[in-house]
Design a protein around this nucleic acid. Structure first.
Length: 405
DNA sequence: TCTGGGGTCCTAGGACCC
DNA sequence: TCTGGGGTCCTAGGACCC
């Protein structure tokens, strides 16, 4: 989806169309006052001059999304709001309204599913779609179906999206970036050299800032240069697993299936404080936040119907260093008090000399509550549920290995 | 006035077991 | 002088993505 959060906001506030708008910030709701003042008016008639501006914001936080008009000024996702305010002080600043974005996320995904049922979720604003078996999915290399999806989403939601069509997910993701916003791009296997190799390595989904810096230090700037390295060389530099992956990726090879279903692995809540807190000096405040985070994770587990056995905490100190601790319980659970108790134990194992900037609570090792309850009187089945049933590297066709089982 | 929140996956070492 | 080998689970940290 194109500038998803910002585009959803523009549907509510069309008077902001064409203006630099950024979405982001902390827990504040700077437009509460505004909404109260104009409660008698439709949202679309609130005067532009009354919207909060980026230059007036004084809290912590980053931009989650910027409109294309704002991007002209060099501001973009993940940039600190204070830095962004220097580049584009006149931008309108809106708070994140995740519930609203989720509504639109469900809406556009329903449209896609009604046309092409093999769809993989990649967060709120992105999906992979398998065109292979969709009637007409091959016409004009996929362009006809891509256009149908764009048109249907726009008619249902008023939102635009960009589509990349390619033989696999890796290339489709790159293709989707070629023609933003509201574009379609088709990349075929034979286009690798002309369209993919000239790109910077960082454009590959899976090469982040660290790997990119290392590649640059090795003199490798483009995907084409990466592709010219031998496999043993890449394995030497990056290890067996990542080295192989880099080699495959640079040659446009990716065999991953479009996964239509997935189970959550963990659920967490975290918060960055308005000011850094000290474990001793701000004990009461910290304790209240800690308990609240535990309760929110418990609420999430209960609402979604999961229990979990691994309780973890995350701390970010004022120097931005991160510490995590976790503890695995004998039995999975979903209640706030048990989470709070285990998380408290974890906290005792961290040195707390430095001030804290962020606190987080996580529950992992998730099992569906229904599955857990179904084994209540079957200890063996219950035991099996508690172990992650990953059967790695057991080749049952191999006579020797098979004989062991 | 730097730098959010919610995730997944991988690695590596130690405990423990057979 | 001798001290295996393989597997799983748990924990901590880190890279990466949306």
């Amino acid at each position: 989806m194109d500038a998803f959060y910002a585009s959803v906001e523009l549907l509510r506030y069309p008077q902001l169309k064409g203006l630099p708008v950024v979405i982001g910030g902390g827990r504040r709701a700077p437009d509460d006052e505004l909404l109260a003042r104009y409660a008698h008016l439709p949202l679309g008639q609130i005067p532009v001059a009354d919207f909060p501006l980026l230059k007036d914001y004084t809290g912590r936080g980053v931009i989650t999304t910027a409109t294309y008009a704002a991007r002209q000024f060099g501001v973009g996702s993940a940039m600190g709001l204070m830095k962004a305010a220097k580049l584009c002080p006149q931008a309108v600043l809106l708070p994140v309204d995740f519930a609203e974005y989720r509504r639109f996320s469900r809406a556009f995904k329903e449209v896609i599913l009604s046309i092409a049922p093999v769809m993989e979720n990649r967060g709120v604003d992105e999906v992979y779609i398998d065109f292979t078996e969709v009637p007409g999915g091959q016409r004009e290399g996929g362009r006809v179906l891509a256009r149908l999806i764009q048109k249907s989403i726009f008619e249902a939601t008023g939102l635009t999206c960009s589509v990349g069509v390619a033989p696999n997910k890796l290339l489709a993701k790159m293709a989707s970036e070629f023609n933003k916003p509201n574009g379609i791009s088709i990349v075929q296997a034979e286009d690798l050299q002309a369209q993919i190799w000239p790109l910077a390595c960082r454009k590959v989904n899976g090469i982040g800032p660290k790997a990119d810096a290392k590649l640059k230090a090795l003199g490798l700037e483009t995907i084409g240069q990466l592709a010219q390295q031998s496999l043993p060389q890449l394995v030497h530099w990056f290890g067996k697993s990542y080295g192989h992956w880099l080699h495959d990726a640079s040659w446009g090879r990716d065999e991953r299936a479009v996964e239509t279903e997935s189970e959550p692995v963990s659920m967490s809540r975290e918060t960055t404080f308005e000011r850094d807190l000290h474990a001793v000096h701000d004990r009461a405040e910290l304790g209240a936040i800690f308990t609240d985070l535990c309760q929110r994770v418990a609420d999430d587990l209960q609402r979604k119907g999961y229990v979990g056995r691994t309780v973890g905490i995350k701390l970010r100190f004022d120097d931005f260093k991160i510490a995590t601790r976790d503890q695995t319980l004998a039995l999975p659970m979903q209640d706030g008090q048990t989470i709070r108790q285990a998380a408290g134990q974890c906290l005792k194992r961290v040195p707390l000399g430095k001030r804290l900037r962020l606190l987080g609570v996580k529950v992992g090792g998730l099992i569906r509550l229904a599955d857990w309850e179904a084994t209540a009187h079957d200890p063996a089945a219950r035991d099996a549920l508690l172990r992650p049933q990953v059967l790695t590297s057991v080749n049952e066709s191999d006579p020797y290995t098979a004989s062991l089982f």
